[in-house]
Each structure stands twice: as structure tokens, then as C-alpha cells.
Design a protein around this nucleic acid. Structure first.
Lengths: 157, 157
DNA sequence: CGCAAATGGTTTGCATGCTTAATAACTGTA
DNA sequence: TACAGTTATTAAGCATGCAAACCATTTGCG
């Protein structure tokens, strides 16, 4: 039955996802390296350019989907590089508002260009229906992720 | 035109890939945590159970698609845990052969089960043609990855 | 009001990836 | 044989993610 036949592909699907995702990111990184942005530092800058202000660190945590300590450290680096600055939030003394400096604004535009260029290049020749088919599968997988493993599911379904 | 309409989705495709890949891996990690395997340490064990011996470290580097220093460090950990051992290669005094201990063999089977269970669960309800549509897109993206960025491609095509 | 719980941020320590550089051994060519 | 280049492994240091523990502040409830 299909299960055995599909096993090889199934086994590699998660692997494939991770590999492609990493390769994709590496492309962006490569393009942004010349702007002095290393690894993940461009993501906070990108999102700071997209989110409606005021942006608290927690907003970045949610947008970047990384944990608060990681965001804090990235912002330390970016602040030292004069790309962002933190200011107190008059509404809530616990929180800090994060903004792009002028240099940061410029960088954010470059990041956006680079990200779009990579996306255009990598998705070249792929039709919208094909993309949507992928999204459909992704959504189903995400749905399956939420069902706690308590239901071992299609063990031989 | 399609470009603007697709922009939102295109922008997020790489993001989506990375996120799904990470989530997938986290599922496996969670299931293997109870076996004392943390993070990425289960992958060398899995592949050692799959590759035809003898397995040199270089073979693992190629299979795991991570760099040689990373493999070396992981093997240090696994060796300390008595899951693998290194022995000299009589064919080539530079290289070392890596093997699973008996405990490692047992662990490899558990890892394989966990990986398959997660795969079955996450791909539940997704048909083979849908999977193949995804693979087709992945392959096209991989092909586009290889074309060096020299051709900026669909900048406004 | 006053205290417990939740929330925002930081610090610390660990896991895992990479790159660069060193060392040892092999290979090919003159 | 000898020497240059390649290959296998390791070592050292950096980047980035996480979780746990901590402080300050805010919120909610008696």
C-alpha cells in the first residue's frame, strides 16, 4: 500500500523543508552581507520597517517568532551599530519602544529589496496555483502540528 | 498584474519554509527528549543506522549536510554518552570509522520510530499527488538556487 | 489599599551551526 | 624520491537560538 511506497518521501519531507528554508535564508544573507548585515540581524530591521509604530520589544518577539532574550541581544547589537534605538514607553514603564535610526531606515529599504529580489528569483517559473497548492499543504501540516501527539494518528491508516 | 498580488505570499514563502521546517524538527525533538536525546544529537545516530558501513566522519558530513567541525563535536558528545565509538581506518590513517555501540543501535531504532511517527502524523490527510506537487515546486526552487544571483531575474517581469 | 499573579525586559548558561586555521596523511607528478 | 596540492579531522572563536532565573512594573482581586 501507499504507506510503504511513500515512506521514503515522507521521511525526507521534514528534512527537505528545513534544507530549503536554510538555503533560502542563506541567499538573503549572502545578498545582505555586503551591507554589513550578518545572519539574522537583518530581520529585526526589516520588521521594524514594516510594523506600525510604536513597536515594543514584545511586538518584535511576536513578529520575529523568536524568544525575548534573543530579541534583546539582537537589539543590543543593532543599537551599537546605530541602526535602532530604544526609548522609554510613557504608557508602560516596563516596556521600551524600538525605532529605526535614519541609517536604520535606509538599511531597512535595502533589506526589503534584497528579500524581494531573492523571492522573485527563487520563485521564478512557478505558477500561482502551484504556490497555492504548497500553501494548502503547509496549512494542513500546521493544523496537524497542533493536534498534540496524544493521537498517534496514521500509524497504518 | 500577478506580481503585486503575489507579493505578499512570495515574501512569506521562505519564512514559511523555515518556520515549518523548524516546527517539524521540534516535534521530533520533543518525542525524543524522553530518550535523553537533545536537539540535533539524534540525527547522527539515525544516519549511522542507515548508512552502509564502514562510515567515516566525512560520510556523515555529507549525509547530515553540516560541516565537519560540527560533526566532530556531535560525535564527541555521543561518544561520551556511549552511543557511538570511533576506530582507526586501516585503509586511510587520516580518517576514523564511526560505529554505533549496542546502546546506540537500540537508540537508532527508537529514533527511526519517532521520526516516522512524526512524519505520519504531520502528513496525515495529505494525498500523494499533493505531496508530489510540493516536491515539484521544491525542485524548481532548488534549481533556481543554483543560478547565481548574477541574473536578478523577475525584478518586474 | 495591598498582595498575588502576569508581563516586559535582561542576564546567564547551554546547544548547535559556521568559518578559519592547524595538523596529519594521502596522491600525483616530475 | 620529493614536493605541491588535496583530504580527514580537530581546535578555537563567533553568531544565534533556547530555557531558566531575576528585577521592575502593572493588573486584578479580595
Amino acid at each position: 500500500m501507499s504507506d510503504l511506497e511513500r515512506n521514503e518521501k515522507e521521511l525526507s519531507f521534514g528534512r527537505r523543508l528545513a534544507r530549503l528554508g536554510a538555503a533560502w535564508r542563506r541567499q538573503v544573507d549572502r545578498d545582505l552581507h555586503e551591507y554589513g548585515l550578518t545572519e539574522a540581524t537583518w530581520r529585526p530591521v526589516l520588521y521594524l520597517g514594516l510594523l506600525p509604530p510604536p513597536v515594543r520589544q514584545t511586538d518584535l518577539v511576536r513578529a520575529l517568532e523568536i524568544e525575548a532574550p534573543s530579541v534583546a541581544r539582537l537589539l543590543d547589537v543593532l543599537e551599537r551599530r546605530d541602526l535602532v534605538f530604544r526609548s522609554p514607553d510613557s504608557e508602560d514603564k516596563r516596556s521600551k519602544l524600538v525605532s529605526l535610526t535614519e541609517k536604520g531606515e535606509r538599511t531597512a529599504r535595502q533589506v526589503r529589496h534584497a528579500v524581494e529580489a531573492v523571492s522573485n528569483r527563487l520563485l521564478q517559473g512557478i505558477s500561482t496555483p502551484e504556490l497555492q497548492a504548497c500553501y494548502s499543504v503547509f496549512e494542513r501540516i500546521e493544523a496537524n502540528l497542533c493536534q498534540r501527539a496524544s493521537a498517534p494518528a496514521g500509524e497504518q491508516a
